[in-house]
Design a protein around this nucleic acid. Structure first.
Lengths: 174, 174
DNA sequence: AAGGCCATGTAACAAGTTACATGATTAA
DNA sequence: TTAATCATGTAACTTGTTACATGGCCTT
């Protein structure tokens, strides 16, 4: 949030939440509720400063100099280890409890979703590169692109790993 | 948890938590505390059944027939959309606030961690394949392996995307 | 059989989600 | 100028994390 505020502030809670979706939504999520709560806390600790109450009891917040320092030291510290939670791997891991047909259906849905994401990143990557966007931003898009490509190739190889998924062939027990 | 219980139950909370780490820890996290709380709830809804109190006030839980049904219908429903939260992309996204030197250091640390993971998955994949493990299990390992390979190639291409990261060369402004 | 170390569980807190309330703005 | 819609914020609930308590077990 400090990072966002330093780029798009002064802004109100709702706006900040939208900007988060736009600017970092591809690899970070936060709900509006979180934004408001956190904004309150950050103000209390002096890292952001809120202006007067405007329409719909909204207030605009900006990062303070102390906030900039905190942001910087957060960045300096380096990212925490990522928490990976990939629900479809749960489905796969316990996949023997499903019929192969149903599992294949689920995987197909999954594939559709991720093909769309892949296209999205491909487009975004092309556009941003063409438009000479901030390289740091492009770097994050590249990650998304590579990631979706990986998902695709994993799906492709799956039937070779899990025999019950290969299409219409009978699997004989010799 | 139901999936785990159906494979490793009857087991107490602590044991279940350990099994979770072992069996699905590579793509799903849960803390012991969560396990205990959830076990309590699942018992209340009749999806698991706890035995008598043993040493250290521990109890062993098993999945009930109702639980098996619930598990199955959860699997049938298909995985929810995954939530991606990749902290290093935040660091990158706001990377212009760091010196290129510091950023490179952070990326190096990141690379070390992930190279280790890549090796881990490579090994695991080889072992499991050799030992003719459950293909569903292997499929999840394959994902880990592909993912880490992707991280590696992203890191490799990064300097080409973000000029300030390319090593010792001077970047002239023509 | 005493001391230290694990195994097991609990409680308090923090972060994340969902559902709701309400005051502006716009369009008919 | 009323109704519909959207912007903004709040409250209640759920999930996730951290820190703590304590009782068995093993080692000497």
């Amino acid at each position: 949030m400090l990072g966002l505020l330093s780029q798009v502030g002064p802004i109100n809670g709702n706006g900040l939440s939208s900007q988060a979706d736009i600017l970092i939504g591809d690899f970070w999520t936060m709900t509006r509720s979180q934004v408001y709560r956190e904004l309150k806390d950050l103000e209390k600790s002096g890292l952001v400063k809120g202006g007067p109450v405007g329409p719909r009891s909204s207030r605009e917040f900006s990062i303070t100099p102390t906030g900039e320092i905190a942001l910087n030291s957060w960045l300096e510290t380096g990212p925490p280890e990522e928490v990976i939670r990939f629900p479809i791997l749960l489905t796969i891991r316990f996949g023997s409890a499903l019929t192969p047909q149903r599992l294949r259906e689920l995987l197909d849905e999954f594939q559709v979703r991720h093909r769309a994401k892949h296209e999205y990143y491909t487009q975004l990557n092309a556009d941003m590169t063409a438009a000479n966007h901030d390289p740091f931003e492009i770097a994050t898009v590249r990650f998304g692109l590579l990631f979706e490509a990986t998902v695709a190739s994993w799906l492709e190889e799956l039937p070779r790993i899990v025999p019950s998924l290969s299409s219409d062939i009978e699997h004989e027990q010799p």
